[in-house]
Design a protein around this nucleic acid. Structure first.
Lengths: 151, 151
DNA sequence: ATGAATATTGTGTATTATTCTCAATAAGCT
DNA sequence: AGCTTATTGAGAATAATACACAATATTCAT
């Protein structure tokens, strides 16, 4: 589990002239306590927050999640359902990649140290500051291969 | 350059009970003649087709591009602008990956044989039929690193 | 070749994720 | 404690994509 305290978040935010708010802290906590492999859409996040008694507006959720992705705290995952998913961004060996069936959206996670190395080396070479690197494999799962005339 | 003839497309389509239409053939041709590294959004594609004297409706474009991605003919690229881009899907050494600045969307392409191998091995292991594999690196480019308070 | 069966197209409309606007509030600095 | 201004919440606006359906065109069997 990552241990990313509210204070660390505050320091990073303040450094750029931004502020730590209860909403941002709550959202960070929620992601940190999410079991590995879970990823949430903005809507999912909104519901979960409501359930746990910390309702936060959808606007703020969208803004916060985007901000944290840009800070490298969250990973922005683009599957094929038409909306983004977010999860906490952790280093190897928690870091993982996704194999996705383009027909039924079934998703399998897998890990790879060497991909992480390639990502780091590539961004360094270009002078970029690495935030996240993810291998996205689009494929057709065994079940969907068998169904001959799906949509 | 890939040489993927209209006949090959027709064969693949008919095999599944689908049909080759002039629109599909035109769209395939356009992508095949696109210089390496170019990728188009649905809107881009619509404009380009209009310009070249082959107007095709936006609905058909969305349908065709989705179909071809599912067939493995096109790659679906998800950058951060909020809409998808498409390009022809080619094997190594044409196959490439993307390093993207999350602030200004500057994109750098790079190639990697080993990623392709990891993608192939992973999908094979899970019994998936590989369509496309792309490493997506989110980072901050040198220019945006220097600008301290950008959005 | 011809015709029947049905996949595909184009037009317009609907949907859905995400962003924007703006007044009210609250975090951070002096 | 007060001032400055970043942030929030509510709702409206935007934009990408999907959908519905009548008209058309491709395929396959004859």
């Amino acid at each position: 589990m990552a241990i990313y305290t509210a204070n660390a978040l505050k320091a990073e935010l303040n450094e750029r002239g931004w502020r730590l708010t209860p909403q941002r802290e709550i959202i960070l906590n929620l992601f940190q306590n999410l079991p590995e492999g879970n990823h949430l859409s903005a809507e999912d996040l909104c519901n979960k927050l409501q359930e746990q008694g910390d309702p936060i507006s959808l606007s703020t959720i969208y803004r916060t999640v985007k901000l944290m992705a840009r800070m490298g705290i969250l990973r922005e995952l683009e599957f094929a359902e038409g909306h983004k998913h977010y999860e906490i961004n952790q280093p190897y060996p928690y870091h993982h990649h996704h194999l996705i069936c383009v027909k039924c959206n079934k998703t399998i996670e897998f890990k790879s140290d060497s991909i992480l190395k390639i990502g780091a080396k590539t961004s360094e070479k270009e002078g970029f500051h690495l935030l996240d690197c993810q291998l996205l494999i689009h494929a057709i799962c065994p079940t969907c291969q068998r169904s001959l005339f799906p949509n």
